[in-house]
Design a binder for these strands. Structure first.
Lengths: 122, 122
DNA sequence: GTAACCAATTACCTCAACGTAACTAATGGG
DNA sequence: CCCATTAGTTACGTTGAGGTAATTGGTTAC
């Protein structure tokens, strides 16, 4: 018989899975993975797609995602340099869940704004 | 005819929906909403369930979620004091998506750990 | 009547996240 | 010859997230 009880739990402070949750439950990660779901893209296009992200933060986010095996980084020996990023197979399993989060934020923001105004007016 | 094109986009830097994404794409939010999916709970029990969270961070997270209309806060006039938190209808629509993120972290952490070791060994 | 106690919050401090700006390398175009 | 281009890196300063510990207020125990 196979084991169905989870070996890991994000609710345990020292469980490694929490470090993974911290990485994926992040606004920049959500946007990067969502955009990369449309296919491989180079650094500059990602930077343009995700309005307001600084080059430094995008570099750091992509490197962390590469380290976790969620994106691949391909450097072309060209001038000016060209670097393309793409979701891995593992990364694709994350695309839908993170897309859902982005869509949730967009779908419910009007209601959330009203809630905030009511709360602040108390 | 109804409008199907999104009015909001998290990819726009100044779009309010990005503030909502920042709130929900967060490790503490993911854990709190996931745990509260099992039903209303008092502060101390939440604190115990989410191993390692400080009282301050839990208070702040809950207050922000309450402000956005994702959880309700009910104070009982008792001694010692008792405060219970519960997902709102809006909050429930967020439960499944955030549960998926927690489960993803737990399911794939072994693979992620291997990826990190390979990356660091380059 | 004061000491202990509990749930929840706050005050204070530290450290990580983030933005800005300057700088790099190698080539092609004016 | 000099400037633009692309994907960084580094330095520096600011803001925000987070941990620790004291505090509050009313009740019970001594």
């Amino acid at each position: 018989m196979s084991q169905t009880v989870p070996d890991w739990s994000v609710l345990a402070a020292t469980c490694p899975s929490r470090t993974s949750l911290a990485r994926i439950a992040n606004k920049w990660t959500a946007m990067v993975v969502t955009v990369l779901g449309n296919g491989r893209m180079r650094f500059g296009d990602l930077r343009t797609s995700i309005d307001g992200i600084s080059g430094k933060v995008l570099t750091e986010t992509l490197r962390d995602l590469e380290r976790d095996g969620i994106v691949t980084r391909q450097v072309f020996a060209e001038v000016p340099p060209r670097v393309e990023y793409e979701l891995t197979e593992l990364g694709f399993t994350l695309h839908e869940p993170l897309l859902v989060l982005c869509r949730w934020a967009e779908k419910h923001i009007a209601e959330v704004i009203v809630n905030r105004e009511m709360y602040d007016a108390r």
